[in-house]
Nucleic acid binder design. Structure first.
Ligand code: MN
Ligand code: MN
Ligand code: ZN
Ligand code: ZN
Lengths: 157, 157
DNA sequence: AATATTAATGAAAACCATTTTCAATAAACT
DNA sequence: AGTTTATTGAAAATGGTTTTCATTAATATT
């Protein structure tokens, strides 16, 4: 089902060329699954989805591909505390969409939010600068997650 | 070696009483190890340390006790991305010392920092309020970590 | 102080997400 | 079309964590 609305190679092809990485069917299938969801899928989730169309693709390949995609920066890997890694495309055709997460500790639901991001970015910039100076630490990344009870869970407790 | 400078029950005893939890030798030993380090120990780290004094205490008990301590809020459990959970006392005799982490992605070193915490707390408060309202999400906790290269690793790359 | 109750423990086995191995396959280059 | 070598799939291994279950010991009761 990997059908794109307009012709031309998908926007991510450039990330593979020139680095010795090959564009393969499994890789396209995995990127396609990630590209078409807004959920935070586990390796097995992705495997099951890919399996519907390419039953011969194995779970091992899913893991290996995800590792590669994280390595080249196309995918983010998260740990929301349920014992399995979760993956999310780091950018879309329209560029990076920076956001943080709200994690429900009761049902595991994960909510993306971009509100307040500007204030956060502002603070993060200051903090990163200060920490870099104080600890001589070169910051490349940050992780911000809020935990609590989601809309559906807060009453039932 | 669990020797306290002055008499009286340790400050954490109150957390066990009244809840049906018993104060046992393994639990005291584990709390003692956590209380005397500023590092972020894994279950095995704690096991090895406890083992020096109580060789009969098993790794299973370490895991079970840590789970309990996290449950009653005496200990924080972290994932710094190296495949094993890390534990840290949530408070000391002098109260809670809120801090966040700087994680070196090269050597795994973890640095606690409390600088800029005030600004962060301020922002977090606003953000939590906004998010709570927008998503009807009851926030109980947050996780903030910065990743990058520490003093010893940034040059060698 | 002795006894009863039941939470806690330890050893071994099970669990399970992820990684490794290795022979077979298929992209990309000539 | 043929060659090179990155990639793949199946099976086995790995390793941190959890479960099982018989035994032990902390606390309550007498
Ligand atoms: Mn997200
Ligand atoms: Mn810390
Ligand atoms: Zn929920
Ligand atoms: Zn380092």
């Amino acid at each position: 089902m990997p059908k794109r609305s307009n012709m031309g190679p998908p926007w991510w092809h450039g990330r593979f060329q020139g680095r010795g990485y090959r564009i393969t069917v499994p890789r396209e299938a995995i990127l396609d699954v990630l590209n078409r969801t807004s959920k935070h899928l586990s390796a097995e989730d992705i495997y099951l989805e890919v399996h519907k169309i390419y039953p011969h693709i194995g779970l091992t390949t899913i893991y290996r591909t995800l590792e590669l995609l994280v390595h080249i920066g196309l995918v983010f890997k998260f740990d929301f505390g349920d014992g399995r890694a979760r993956f999310e495309l780091s950018e879309g055709p329209k560029g990076i969409r920076h956001h943080h997460h709200l994690v429900c500790t009761n049902c595991g639901r994960v909510i993306d939010y971009t509100d307040f991001i500007d204030d956060e970015i502002e603070l993060l910039g200051r903090t990163e600068k200060g920490l870099s100076k104080k600890f001589n630490f070169k910051i490349t990344n940050h992780l911000i997650q809020f935990y609590g009870l989601c809309d559906g869970c807060r009453d039932k407790k």
